[in-house]
Amino acid sequence: MKLILTHEVSGLGTPGDVVEVKDGYGRNFLLPRNLATPWSKGGEKQIETIRKARRAREIATVEQAQQVKQSLESKPVVLNARAGQGGRLFGAVTPSDIAEAVTAGGGPSVDKRKVELPQAIRTTGQHTVLVRLHADVSAKVTVEVVSA
């Protein structure tokens, strides 16, 4: 199945890429989550629009990405969440929660799609999260979850 990616998919490609995937993966995962659209001749026109939008959102140079990385790694991000006894959270911390906490803490604005959680954060304490800033640069951000 030939698809045009509309969002970044780890291990597959970036928005605007035309990829060939197995039918089940495309039909059951990529299309229902709006991560891709079916490829067509008319869809080729969409690719340039997607790439323009991506260039506007992205950090342009590696030097800028390095500066953002230093500012993100310099201090931990504090996130308040409701927790029960033993530090177990009611629910989980999501990538959008982390992106909002970075911005609220005085850091640079981070796209929630660039935040990668190795596993769901469901306890209080310190956790390490990966933020992809550029194709060559990613920052390891310390997220400190405290009980509210």
Rank of each mutant, 00 (worst) to 15 (best):
N28M: 00
R57H: 13
V143K: 08
V146A: 10
M1C: 07
A36K: 05
R27N: 07
F90E: 00
S40Y: 09
K75I: 05
R82S: 12
F29N: 04
V68T: 15
A83M: 02
V143C: 10
V137N: 02
L12H: 01
T124S: 03
T94I: 05
E20D: 15
L12G: 00
Q67F: 08
R27K: 13
T128H: 13
T6C: 04
A139Q: 05
R88S: 10
S138T: 03
V9R: 05
L5A: 08
A56I: 09
M1Q: 08
G105N: 11
G13N: 07
K140N: 15
K112L: 01
A56M: 10
V145H: 07
A99M: 07
A101T: 03
L72I: 11
A148H: 09
L117H: 08
Q119C: 03
Q85K: 15
A101E: 01
N34C: 03
E100I: 02
I98T: 09
P32F: 02
G86K: 12
E144I: 02
G106V: 06
V129T: 09
S109N: 12
A83Q: 01
A56F: 02
I98D: 03
G11S: 05
G105T: 09
K75L: 11
V78P: 01
D17V: 01
A139M: 02
A92T: 14
A65K: 06
V9P: 01
F29A: 00
V115K: 03
S74M: 10
A135D: 11
Y25W: 06
R55P: 00
P32A: 02
R55M: 09
E116D: 11
V129F: 06
G107E: 04
P108W: 06
A56K: 15
G84T: 10
R54V: 12
T123E: 12
F90Q: 02
T123W: 05
G106F: 10
I4F: 07
D17S: 10
M1E: 05
V9Y: 07
G24H: 01
A81W: 06
G42W: 07
L35Y: 13
A83W: 03
Q119D: 10
A92W: 06
S71M: 14
G91A: 11
P38M: 04
K75V: 12
R33M: 07
K114V: 01
G105L: 08
Q46G: 15
S138C: 02
A139R: 06
I98H: 09
R33T: 00
E144Y: 00
P108Q: 11
E73A: 14
D111G: 11
V18Q: 10
V19W: 02
G11R: 02
I4D: 01
E144D: 10
R27I: 01
L30M: 05
E48M: 09
L130H: 10
V143Q: 08
G86I: 04
I59L: 13
P95L: 09
V19R: 14
A83E: 00
A60L: 12
K22P: 01
T49Q: 15
A139E: 00
G84M: 12
E48K: 15
G86N: 13
E58M: 11
K2H: 11
F29H: 09
L5H: 07
R57T: 11
E44M: 14
D97N: 14
